[in-house]
Design a protein around this nucleic acid. Structure first.
Lengths: 167, 167
DNA sequence: TTCAATGCAAAACATTTGCAATCTT
DNA sequence: AAGATTGCAAATGTTTTGCATTGAA
């Protein structure tokens, strides 16, 4: 039941397209329902890290109609199958991003405006690997959140500081 | 109102003891109540990453009696003041750990038993710093979760594999 | 004395679940 | 036809909040 993704990559072309994922899920005993197609289709087209609620809104905006519960259930399935990653930015709701193999990245979260940007992981990969090994830990995946201020907010706040002296 | 901690470090000895923190909070206009003393005292003595609920239980176990709401409110205050860090392991409840300056570490979370261990950050620090800089991002803090299997669970599962062939 | 902080219960959320109806296969 | 999946509403679990009361300064 775990990480269908790997299987997919060995047997199929590594597309990870909507149909590719659906086929992989199907092969693993899941049924191919209209709802799952819609969720996948809409989710894959969304940028950033949408929450279940946001995915639901987007789905309705596009004229489809399905229950929030189904979105939760589908996301859980996709998570267990390894097609998505679950993120927690600390704002009370969970967020999801697509799991693209070999595309690890860090999340930089601006404390001021809440915007998140992504930085490619680069050297971090082997560093974490080495670190885990040192602790006899088998590393499967990782998530990193960098908190601070984005460029826009720094500019804004320094401008404000000039205006009102002493922030 | 933000990061009283820094202020404390420049004016006081950098102890971060219960009284040290209380004094710093007080200096910033917060009132020194019995409840806050108790929460701080108990929390600082707890290991790991206790959730508000766990802190509450521990407090009651020690014979004190105060409301869960107060714990939430106090933790929020400590968070905004920079004395604690908030963590989300993905198990549905938030967890808190003490913010010790210059003691950054990564969290290794075992997917099997749920246990978390900590690894000192080492080289990660400047790597993140460099990365942030490259994106014009001012780094304040970071949190890293490494997911995988701990030593104990690996041993256990390999033992099981021998017994039942094909896991 | 004054206003912040507390306790309590209710409210607000996000997420999960039970169950009857409905789809895939 | 059989069993998985859905929708709905209710349940759950965590966190927040309104408000009267208490307590620190």
């Amino acid at each position: 039941m775990h990480n269908i993704m790997h299987e997919m990559h060995s047997h199929h072309q590594r597309d990870g397209s909507e149909t590719g994922i659906m086929r992989a899920l199907q092969k693993n005993g899941h049924k191919l329902t209209r709802q799952r197609q819609v969720i996948l289709e809409v989710f894959l087209k969304m940028d950033g890290h949408p929450s279940p609620e946001e995915i639901h809104k987007e789905i309705r905006r596009k004229g489809y109609r399905l229950s929030l519960a189904t979105i939760y259930r589908t996301l859980k399935m996709l998570l267990e199958a390894g097609f998505v990653r679950k993120l927690e930015f600390g704002d009370g709701q969970s967020r999801y991003e697509r799991q693209k193999e070999g595309n690890q990245h860090l999340h930089m979260i601006c404390k001021c405006c809440g915007q998140t940007l992504e930085a490619p992981a680069m050297d971090v990969d082997w560093l974490f690997e080495e670190l885990a090994e040192k602790h006899a830990f088998v590393l499967h995946s990782y998530t990193t959140y960098l908190y601070g201020l984005c460029n826009a907010c720094i500019s804004a706040s320094s401008k404000k500081a000039i205006t009102q002296k002493k922030g």
